[in-house]
Structures are given as C-alpha cells and as structure tokens.
Simulated assay, not measured.
Amino acid sequence: MVFILRILFAAKDIKRPRNYLRSKFLDSIRLHVKGGTGGTGLPKFGGLGGQGGCVYCIGKEKSNLLSISNKYRMKTISAGHGEDSRKTKIVGNPGKDVQLEVPLGVTIYREDGNSMGSIDIEDQTIIVARGGPGGNPQNNFLGHFGQTYHIRLDLKLIADVGLVGFPNAGKSSLLKAISRAKPRIANYPFTTIKPNKGIIQFEDLRQISIADLPGLIEGAHNNIGLGHKFLKHVERTKLLLFIADVQGFQLSPKYPQRSCLETVLLLNRELELYDPELLEKPAILAVNKMDLEGAQDIFEEVKHSLKNIEKAMDSIPKEIRPEKGIVFEDVVGISALKNDDSIQDLKFLLRKRLDEYAEENNPDIVDARDIFKRNRAVLTEKGPQVT
C-alpha cells in the first residue's frame, strides 16, 4: 500500500508540458486498412456472392488528422463483407464501404513507399483498400479476401502564401495583423510550434489563405530542428513570403549573429538544399521591424545588395552562400507589430502577385475577365430593367 501511494504522489510531481506545447496538429499518421471479403456464391443455382466493401478516403476541408488518429488509433479500419448467395437471394448484397474523411492536401502512401495519390479538392476520393470479389464461376464461387495495407497519410498544407523565416522574425505578428488568425505571439524564438493558417479577407469578398509555419534554423534541410516537418509544407504554396528581421538573427550563443542580408541568403540556401524547385516559386521579401532606429538605412542596403547579388555574395561566408540566389518580385519594409499602412500595402501586393501568377498558369482566366467586363459594360449602357 505504501509503495502504491509513493507511485501516485510521484506521478503528481511529474512536470507536465504547458498547454501551448501540447500540439493539436498532426501532419502524418499511419493506419491499417482492410477491404471486405467477397461473399460465397451458390454453384447449384449459379448464385453470385456480394462484392466486399472498399475503404476509401474523401477530401473534406474541415477534417483533420488528429481526429482520425484519435478515432482509429491501434485499430483496423475494415469494410463490410459481401453477402453470401442463397436460395432466396441468388445475388448477395455488396459489403458496406467505409468512408474516411481526410483534410485537403493529404498524400497517401503504402508501406512500400509508393504513393496511392493525393487529395487536393473537396469530395475527391481515393480507394485505399479494395474489397474482394464475390463468388462466381471464374473463382469457383469462392469469395476472395479484400486488400490489406498499412498506409500513411501525409499532410502538406495547401495555402496561397507560405511565410518563410527564422524564429522570432515576426511571422506570427504579421499573420495576426494581416488576417483573422490568432497565433501565439511572444518575444522569444520558437513561439510557433505548429503551422497556423489564416485568411486575408478583402472588401470585395476575395480571400487569400496564408500559412505561418514553424521557424527554420540552420541545418533544417538535414532535418535539424523541425526540419522536413516544416519544409514539406512550402511545396503546396503558390507564393513564398520571406520575413527577415531588420536587425538580423542569432538563435543562441552557439550560433554566430547573422545580419539581415545573411538571414535572407541563409533561408535561400535551406530551401535550395531541400528542393531546388522551390526557388522557382514567386517570392516577396518583407523586412520586418522597420519602426526601429536605423532600420531604413539597413533596408536600403539590403535592397541594393539583392539587386547586385553576385557582387554581394563575395562578402557572405561560404557555409551560408546559396548556389542560386532567389529572385524576389518585390522587397518591402513593414512593421508587423505596429500594424501600420505598410501591412495594408503588403496585403494588396500579395493579391496583385497571386493574380499575375493565376493568369500566367491559367490563360483562360484572362478571357473570362474580358467577357465579364464586356457583359458589365453592356448592362451599364442598357441601364436598369424592370421585369
């Protein structure tokens, strides 16, 4: 009895992680799925067994991997078995399918690493375990087992804009200022420990999704820190928004102090080493904390260096020097904490660049806009009509 009490009291003394450190976000889970077995046929009457049910994933915007994990942890997701054929019912009913709602942006992998497909739009479906065929003349009226797989659901956030920056650069402050999101903000690194997604709402009801992702550190491409857990989410964004502290960044005394320009180039290098194709995405650089003394001079120096990047590279340490410098569409100064006019200017700049991106990748959009303008002009000339 004394021993049990000691264990109970000791358990109370164990320090539990603070609430904000208990992440409620999952971007990868493993599941065991099993298709239903086909029903047995009836040879005497030529009866056919029912097809086994299938397990399939369907895309839903409001779904999340955490709820799926909580519901199916340590369980097999099994579809229903096909009904056997009998005298009173020659053709058996098929087994019941299982519908697994998953968030948009999920890629499904089998245990051998092969991809079964991705779900990117609402109500898109992928069968992950087919049911076995029912008994028929071709299989001697014996129903077959359904497919059985261990699968992995890997989520990569789908967003129009992805925020890229080192810890404490002001990404969460910017997300709060620019959208309706309410991320945790504090004056120390690694405030963001899970991705946050916000929506920029314009007066004409246009919406832009923006993702604040956990801060990178040097070596993230080698999975140091949050590493790949962060970088994989950048792949599904249309535009990259780099955030850099005008004063530079130093993670800890073990790391050297990096200037604002060095920070930008180091972010460039981490993306390059993870996936060089990321450098082909449209990108904007926002230099934050412009309300600090001397910030304007540093900002002008950074802009000048980025325009003459080949010459500026000579002064950059080799260990952080990228092979290919990213080309920024725009370089702007902002003050995320002050939430001044610079934030509004950035909002409309993001919209402008995303519209240009859409027109380049979807030429039909231009034609559709011309038709809309022509129709609106015709209606304006005719004036209001009474029906």
Rank of each mutant, 00 (worst) to 15 (best):
N288S: 13
H304D: 06
F190L: 06
A211N: 09
R18D: 05
D13L: 11
T192L: 14
N361H: 15
R374E: 15
H304S: 10
T88F: 05
A10Q: 11
E270P: 11
G53E: 07
A377R: 10
L306W: 07
A211Y: 03
N223F: 11
E262I: 11
K44P: 00
L261F: 15
T37A: 09
V33F: 09
V161T: 05
I217K: 03
I90D: 00
D364C: 01
G39K: 11
L354C: 09
E61W: 08
I108L: 05
N93I: 13
F202H: 08
G95W: 02
C57T: 13
N223L: 07
D160R: 09
G92M: 02
F141G: 03
Q344P: 00
A79G: 12
L216I: 12
P317L: 15
N222F: 09
D245I: 04
Q138Y: 14
C260R: 04
T237W: 00
V287I: 15
G135F: 03
Q385D: 02
K311H: 04
G47I: 10
K232M: 07
F249G: 01
R22K: 15
L175Y: 06
Q51L: 11
I224H: 14
F348L: 10
I309H: 05
P384Q: 14
F25R: 14
K89C: 04
